[in-house]
């Protein structure tokens, strides 16, 4: 299985490659990709440098152009595909059908990967993208249980990549409008969820409050550690009870599932986190490299070393990890 790591910056890209990533993915400095953050992502010059660095060391580079262009943005998004092609990336990660069609016709030789934002959760949906745009690989949304992944994998017409570690998105990706409902930006339209521009922190007599476009997402008492106000991870009231009504702030960690994912024929595991620092990328990439090497060696059976879990837990939201939807009971 291939280890696919995030690159939010050139230092992060180099770090990922140095620590064992088989492939890295990046986006341009605009809303054509689903991790639009100030100070992140690549211009053409940096991208070219990163691609050269990776290629010299035998790693592949994917370019994510995985938001949905509206009429006014069409030329810009199409231009991003042209830029990726001329940079010589190894694959383009796309979600929008119009862009997939453009890339397939204009650059048939560059492999197309269906982004998680393409919302494909069944082999029929994968066949739709395969038949129409000849995609080579698809990234599965983080909503399927392992049994369901098995069902998809059994009939999948394309390679599959699954999320292995990082922030846990519990809504079917490509179809979540919660962020644009509270702010004016969503992953689909602007490549942003709960955008930083809408975040406000406030010390109050009741505690530290986090707000998103003035909406109270969470309030922290003394001793509670505060997290970024991703709107689905706040504490809300339902019928008088205050709790994490949608999801707790935890990270996805599928280290335990590696042998099963391998047995299912999954082609690649993906690490989330283009917004993360190079130091974070180094620790995560190194840990997963160890695990995958151990899995490949396969001599005494695969066991998860406590030190790996310890490292990953330390890098997780709230210090907690979950198997997420892969584990049926979580649902």
């Amino acid at each position: 299985m291939e280890l696919v790591c995030p690159a939010g910056s050139l230092p992060a890209l180099k770090t990922a490659v140095d620590n064992g990533a088989n492939a890295v993915y990046f986006g341009f400095k605009d809303s054509t990709n689903a991790r639009q953050f100030a100070g992140l992502n690549f211009n053409d010059k940096r991208a070219a440098e990163g691609i050269e660095y990776a290629h010299l060391r035998g790693a592949r580079v994917f370019c994510a152009i995985n938001t949905y262009p509206q009429p006014e943005g069409w030329e810009q998004w199409k231009g991003a595909v042209d830029r990726a092609a001329s940079l010589g990336v190894d694959a383009i990660i796309l979600a929008d059908m119009g862009l997939l069609d453009y890339a397939a016709n204009r650059y048939p030789h560059i492999p197309r990967h269906l982004s998680v934002q393409g919302s494909a959760t069944s082999h029929e949906a994968l066949s739709f993208y395969k038949d129409n745009f000849d995609i080579r690989r698809a990234v599965l949304p983080r909503v399927l249980s392992l049994d369901q992944v098995r069902g998809v994998a059994k009939h999948s017409p394309v390679e599959l990549e699954v999320f292995a570690f990082g922030s846990l998105c519990i809504m079917a990706e490509g179809r979540c409008y919660l962020s644009s409902y509270l702010t004016d930006e969503s992953p689909n339209t602007r490549g942003a969820c709960s955008p930083a521009k809408a975040v406000r922190w406030q010390e109050t007599p009741k505690g530290l409050e986090s707000r998103l476009n003035d909406v109270l997402i969470d309030r922290y008492g003394q001793g509670e550690s505060a997290g970024y106000p991703t709107l689905c991870k706040g504490r809300f009231q339902v019928e008088g009870h205050v709790y994490h009504a949608i999801e707790e702030p935890v990270s996805l960690n599928t280290l335990d599932l590696l042998p099963e994912l391998q047995a299912l024929g999954i082609s690649a595991v993906k690490i989330e986190g283009r917004q993360r620092s190079p130091a974070y990328i180094a620790d995560v990439a190194r840990t997963w490299r160890h695990a995958l090497d151990n899995l490949e060696a396969g001599t005494d059976g695969f066991t998860v070393e406590p030190q790996w879990q310890q490292t990953l837990a330390g890098l997780s939201e709230g210090g907690l990890t979950t198997l997420g939807a892969y584990h049926r009971k979580w649902k």
């Binding site: 509206q70 009429p71 393409g118 069944s122 949906a125 179809r175």
Partner: peptide
């Protein structure tokens, strides 16, 4: 969902798309 698109297209059944279908531009 795209699953329904695929099955309808394969069976040559005309279809409409609901508001959750990812349609943002004319090319699509």
């Amino acid at each position: 969902d795209q699953s329904a698109l695929q099955v309808a297209i394969r069976n040559r059944i005309p279809f409409v798309t609901g508001p959750s279908m990812n349609i943002y531009n004319t090319a699509t």
